[in-house]
């Protein structure tokens, strides 16, 4: 599956302060995880679809894994939750499966919870530059040594992806089977992939550490930034109105 990432744009959501968007994500996800009502979940889903549309993004339509995980969640809930009234029952040999009205409702609510969680996360990452997020977090008070960790980890992701492909090809060229799924083959594949990758990655630590300490990284409690992320009135307003929107929605659909 191709991974999603930042999609540059000029929508309102793109222009919001990254930390403001992170707070909105935390609030939204918190509400999603603490409410099990089907109607409220559907309402939150509606907000999400509108937000995706407003940001000029498609709604996660390209992932088979999301669909299969949703089906899995739905099936588990509908098969195992036996509440309400029985709707349908059938036998598979000695096993009898029954679908109850409560199970269907629980399944739908859980799927909505999953879609709302990943949908909001996708909206966040598609409208937020990760590096800008790290800078904004540091300007908002996160110690810059910790913020630098996030920047470093993200900056190395493309390099590690490239190295993983190189190591994989090199090992396969040596005749090592990396695609077998028997336990022994799986263990060997993991060993032949991960050990070179780890050793190669750790080899970069020294040069980076020397470079950082040569520049006295971490000596001062504060640092300056080339890029500034000021908080605008629109950010404050959004932060104020969004929880009210969720509360109002809860009252209407409750």
């Amino acid at each position: 599956m191709g991974r999603l990432g930042y999609v540059p744009g000029g929508s309102l959501l793109h222009r919001l302060h990254p930390v403001c968007k992170l707070l909105l994500l935390i609030i939204y996800t918190g509400v999603v995880w603490t409410n099990a009502r089907l109607s409220y979940g559907a309402g939150l889903f509606g907000i999400l679809v509108i937000s995706h549309w407003a940001a000029g993004l498609g709604f996660m339509g390209r992932s088979r894994r999301i669909i299969s995980f949703s089906i899995m969640i739905f099936l588990v809930q509908t098969i195992f939750v036996r509440q309400g009234v029985p709707l349908w029952e059938f036998s598979l040999g000695r096993v009898t499966l029954a679908f109850w009205s409560g199970g269907l409702a629980a399944g739908a609510a859980s799927v909505l919870r999953f879609l709302n969680t990943i949908g909001s996360s996708y909206l966040f990452i598609a409208t937020t530059d990760p590096n800008l997020l790290a800078v904004a977090l540091m300007q908002a008070g996160l110690p810059y040594r910790q913020g630098f960790m996030l920047i470093t980890a993200l900056r190395f992701v493309p390099l590690f992806q490239y190295e993983l492909i190189q190591i994989r090809r090199a090992q396969m060229a040596k005749g090592i089977d990396l695609e077998g799924l028997r336990p022994r083959q799986l263990a060997a594949a993991v060993r032949h992939l991960l050990i070179p990758l780890v050793l190669s990655a750790l080899g970069k630590v020294d040069s980076l550490a020397i470079s950082m300490e040569g520049r006295a990284f971490g000596l001062h409690p504060q640092r300056t930034y080339r890029v500034q992320c000021p908080v605008s009135t629109a950010d404050w307003l959004t932060l104020l109105l969004f929880p009210l929107l969720l509360y109002g929605l809860g009252r209407i659909l409750g």
Partner: peptide
Amino acid sequence: NRDLLVIAILSGIGGVM
């Protein structure tokens, strides 16, 4: 600093893997 770098790099590989 070296500890933070190790953590950052391992997190990066973990994310990729």
